[in-house]
C-alpha cells in the first residue's frame, strides 16, 4: 500500500495525542494532576494539539476536504465514519476536564473532584480508547489486505497510542519538575509491551499462509499457475500506484531494525538514564526519548503501509497475498 505521509502523521500524532489525553484524564481521576499549573496547561495543549494536528493532516489527503462533514453520517456501517464521530466527541469531555482543572481554581484546590469532572474524565478515557480502536478497525476490517486484517493491528494501534502518550507524559513531567516514579514505571512497561506487540505482529505477518492467490483471483484455479503476459495498460495506473507500492520491501529488514531501536530501545534506555539524573539532564534525556520514539513510530507506521500487500496486486504479477 502507498504510504501517504498525511495518514502516517495522522495515525502517529493523533495516537500519541489520545494516549496523552487518556493518561491525563486517568491521572486526574485517580489522584488528580500535579499542582504545577504550567505542567497541566502544557499537557492539555499538547494532547489537543497532537490530536488536532493529526485530524487536520488526515484532511490533507482528501480529494474534497470541504465536504468532510459528510464523513460523520455513515457511522452505522463505516469504521472511518465512526472514527470521525468519536474523534470529535472526545473534545467534549476532554475539553470539560481541561477547563475544570485549568480555569477553575476551586476545583484545583478542593480536596475532592466534583462528580461531573470525574464523569467527564471517565468519558475522556473511553472516547480516547474508542477513537484509537476505530482507527485500528479501519485497517483491520479490510479483508483485501491480510497484513492488516488481524487482531495484531488493533492491539498495535492501542498499545502504541498508550505507549507514546505515556512517554510524552514522562517528558512533560520531568520538564516541569513534577516527575513521579508512578508515571515512569508505566511508560517503561508500555515500551516493553510495544516491543513485544510489534515483534508478534511481524512474526505473524511473516508466517501467515496466503489468503488469496492469482489463480483464485482470475477464476482459473485448476488450469495451472497464472502469470502475467501483457500488461493491460502501458504505464502504471492508480491501482498500481496506490495499492502496488514496492519500495519498502527492499530495505524492510533494515527498516524494521531501525524502527525497533528508535521506537522502543532508545526511549527505554533514555528514560532509565533520565531517572538517574535530577538536573537539566533529566528533561533533556526524556526529550531524547520522545524524539527517538517519534522517529521510530513514523518508520514503523511507514512500514505498516509499505509492507502491506493488497489483493489487486494479484492481477499485476503477485502470486499470492
Amino acid at each position: 500500500m502507498h504510504p501517504a505521509f498525511s495518514v502516517i502523521f495522522f495515525t502517529v500524532s493523533s495516537g500519541a495525542g489520545y494516549g496523552l489525553l487518556a493518561i491525563l484524564a486517568l491521572q486526574l481521576y485517580v489522584e488528580r494532576l500535579p499542582q504545577n499549573i504550567w505542567f497541566s496547561w502544557a499537557g492539555f495543549v499538547i494532547a489537543f494539539g497532537l490530536i488536532s494536528f493529526g485530524l487536520l493532516s488526515s484532511f490533507a489527503h482528501l480529494g474534497h476536504p470541504e465536504r468532510a462533514l459528510k464523513a460523520f453520517s455513515q457511522w452505522r456501517s463505516s469504521w472511518l465514519s465512526r472514527e470521525g464521530v468519536v474523534a470529535v466527541l472526545t473534545y467534549a469531555p476532554g475539553g470539560l476536564i481541561a477547563i475544570a482543572w485549568l480555569l477553575i481554581p476551586d476545583i484545583r484546590n478542593s480536596s475532592a473532584l466534583p462528580v461531573w469532572v470525574e464523569i467527564a474524565a471517565l468519558f475522556t478515557i473511553l472516547c480516547a480508547v474508542l477513537t484509537v480502536y476505530c482507527t485500528s478497525m479501519i485497517y483491520a476490517s479490510l479483508r483485501t489486505i491480510p497484513h492488516w486484517h488481524n487482531g495484531h493491528t488493533v492491539i498495535g494501534y492501542l498499545v502504541h497510542a498508550a505507549m507514546s502518550g505515556a512517554v510524552v507524559y514522562v517528558f512533560l513531567s520531568s520538564l516541569f519538575g513534577v516527575l513521579a516514579m508512578s508515571a515512569m514505571w508505566p511508560a517503561l512497561a508500555l515500551l516493553g509491551v510495544g516491543f513485544f506487540a510489534k515483534t508478534a505482529f511481524w512474526r505473524y505477518v511473516d508466517s501467515a499462509p496466503p489468503s488469496m492467490t492469482a489463480e483464485s483471483a482470475t477464476g482459473l484455479t485448476g488450469f495451472g499457475a497464472v502469470r502475467p503476459l501483457d500488461p493491460p495498460h502501458t504505464s502504471a495506473n492508480y491501482l498500481q500506484k496506490e495499492m502496488g507500492f514496492q519500495i519498502a520491501r527492499k530495505h524492510a529488514a533494515r527498516l524494521r531494525r531501525i524502527a525497533m531501536i528508535l521506537s522502543y530501545g532508545a526511549p527505554f534506555i533514555a528514560l532509565i538514564l533520565s531517572a538517574q539524573t535530577d538536573d537539566w539532564l533529566n528533561p533533556l534525556l526524556a526529550g531524547v526519548a520522545v524524539l527517538a520514539m517519534a522517529a521510530g513510530l513514523l518508520t514503523e507506521r511507514w512500514l505498516f503501509f509499505a509492507e502491506a500487500k493488497h489483493s489487486v496486486t494479484l492481477y499485476y504479477g503477485e502470486k499470492s497475498v
Partner: peptide, 25 residues
C-alpha cells in the same frame, strides 16, 4: 457526496474503483 478518501478502493479486492485526481472523487 464523495470526499475522495480512497478507502473504497482499498476495500475493493478487484481494483474496480479508480481515483480521479482532477475531480477529487
Amino acid at each position: 457526496k464523495c470526499i475522495g478518501c480512497k478507502l473504497c478502493s482499498w476495500a475493493c479486492p478487484y481494483g474496480a474503483r479508480e481515483y480521479d485526481p482532477t475531480e477529487g472523487v
